[in-house]
Simulated scan of single mutants.
Amino acid sequence: MLCILLGVLALHLLVFILLIVSTASNEKGHSDLWYSCLSEPKAYSCSQASNEDWIQAVQALMILAVVFCFVSLLAFAYQLFRLFKGGRFYFTSIFQILASVFVMCAAIIYTVMRPSNGKGFGYSYVLAWVAFPLSLISGLIYLILRKKD
Rank of each mutant, 00 (worst) to 15 (best):
V103P: 06
K42L: 10
S36H: 04
E27M: 05
S50Q: 08
C3G: 12
G122T: 05
L38W: 02
D149R: 07
G29M: 00
E27L: 03
V71Y: 04
S93T: 00
F70A: 13
Y123H: 12
F84G: 15
N51D: 09
V67I: 09
V58A: 04
F70C: 07
V67M: 02
G122I: 08
F81C: 14
L80V: 08
L13T: 11
S39F: 11
Y142W: 13
A49E: 14
Q96K: 00
Y35Q: 11
T111F: 10
M1Q: 12
L5S: 11
L11M: 10
Y35F: 14
A49R: 09
F68Y: 07
F68S: 07
L6G: 12
F91S: 10
Y123I: 10
Q96W: 06
W129M: 07
A24K: 01
F81D: 05
D32L: 00
A49W: 04
F16P: 01
K85T: 13
A99L: 02
L38Y: 13
L64Q: 11
D149K: 14
S138C: 06
S124V: 01
C46T: 01
S45D: 15
T23L: 10
A106H: 06
I55G: 01
F76C: 01
Y125H: 08
I4N: 10
L80C: 13
S50W: 03
S124F: 00
V130P: 02
L127C: 08
Y142N: 08
T92P: 03
L38K: 14
A77G: 14
Y44S: 10
Q56D: 11
I4S: 12
L136T: 06
A24L: 15
Y78D: 14
F76P: 09
G120T: 06
G7C: 08
I97C: 06
G139M: 00
G139Y: 04
G7A: 01
D32H: 00
I94A: 10
L11T: 02
V66F: 01
E40F: 09
T23R: 05
L11S: 08
I108F: 07
S116C: 10
C69T: 13
A128K: 05
H30S: 11
F81M: 07
N51I: 09
P41Q: 07
S135K: 04
V71L: 13
C69R: 05
V112D: 12
L74C: 14
K28M: 08
L61I: 04
L134M: 00
L2Y: 05
A107E: 06
W54K: 06
G7D: 03
L18A: 06
L6V: 14
V15A: 08
A99W: 01
M104A: 15
S22L: 03
M113Q: 07
L83K: 04
F16T: 12
A75T: 14
Y90H: 15
Q56E: 11
R88A: 14
V126C: 08
V101L: 08
I63H: 12
